[in-house]
Design a protein around this nucleic acid. Structure first.
Lengths: 186, 186
DNA sequence: CTGTGCATGTAATCCGTTACATGATTTA
DNA sequence: TAAATCATGTAACGGATTACATGCACAG
């Protein structure tokens, strides 16, 4: 039955619909867009994407608008798909990120020597600093008006930049805290 | 075979081992510790945890140290488990978070009206501000020397605080950017 | 005519969630 | 003795990753 909705919080669905609002595309095309623009916010594998397109088509949220050489199927978003995307964007509250491997490790840093714990935190600071450098580079190479994705993409880039700054500062602070605690004990 | 390792990046395993370093505990006990202290960094369901304990026991990383009433099984970490935890903490680089539903939405904010887009960003700022308030509250109620988990737990709390500050500032800035872009077009 | 890229699909496996299912022990 | 809590497990399902498998089309 086409009335069957699949679960609410599933974002690959919306990522796919979102990319299709920029024009019809094949699974192959979309896969590249996922790699180019969404790699850092919502990665998708080939396997997953082809499956998803099948489900979206069955649900009437996309259609096969054209077929090309090599079995190419060009998908286009339908009005229903568009409505679903806007509904998700405007009315469904985003689920906060619940898991952080980085922080999980922090909880158990007491199992290591203070030196090793500091090393861990210093590494976090270094990695964050490196990421910052990359992002600043990226910011200069992004064409300010290369399509609508870039407009809001800039906001996402700024988020990542601010995040990595925060992470670096925190890790530096935390390493220092560990150092202070160590001295306090001696 | 006890030589069989399961996959490398699986953190429920390490979260469980980590909690067991604070002393033997049953699945039931651990579940509460997951809810009390790890809810915001690595949540686990009952179903998952009992399964995991079985696998850890089969792999020799934990053992059933004692059995109590109501079929209670008290698990204890083994030297092998301890070694595995330390190896993970010290030598395996943490996997960065790849997915952010919040940012995914930002990429498609162009599908909404600028007013709706700003509303989304303003909501992010509000939610972040509320989280901050909760965290500051929490910070005052946490006993400074209530066990070793609290020591490094403080670092995690500080991370969350800085994160929510960053998020609020970013969202406010981004909403303003949208406003400016809108005015620029008019 | 050969390699590179375009193009789609399936299978196996694992992690995570929700729901179902059961029962023993303590406390009021 | 009834309710709350302790305590463990299984089943079903969906999402994500990796690997496998196939084949057409075009450029050099």
């Amino acid at each position: 039955m086409s009335m069957m909705n699949y679960a609410a919080g599933v974002s690959l669905k919306h990522a796919t619909l979102g990319l299709l609002t920029y024009g019809p595309a094949s699974g192959y095309d979309l896969l590249q867009k996922f790699r180019e623009s969404l790699a850092n916010v919502w990665p998708a594998t080939q396997s997953q994407l082809y499956g998803e397109l099948g489900k979206l088509a069955a649900a009437g949220l996309v259609t096969v608008a054209a077929e090309g050489p090599r079995g190419r199927k060009e998908y286009a978003i339908t009005p229903e798909g568009s409505a679903e995307l806007r509904h998700w964007l405007g009315e469904v509250p985003p689920a906060p990120n619940r898991r952080s491997e980085m922080l999980l490790r922090v909880f158990f840093l007491g199992m290591l020597t203070p030196e090793q714990a500091r090393e861990y935190l210093d590494d976090r600071a270094t990695v964050a600093a490196e990421l910052q450098a990359e992002l600043r580079e990226l910011a200069t190479t992004v064409d300010p008006d290369s399509g609508p994705l870039a407009v809001y993409g800039r906001l996402a880039l700024e988020w990542a930049l601010r995040f990595s700054v925060m992470q670096e500062e925190w890790a530096t602070w935390a390493a220092d805290e560990v150092r202070r605690a160590q001295e306090g004990v001696e």
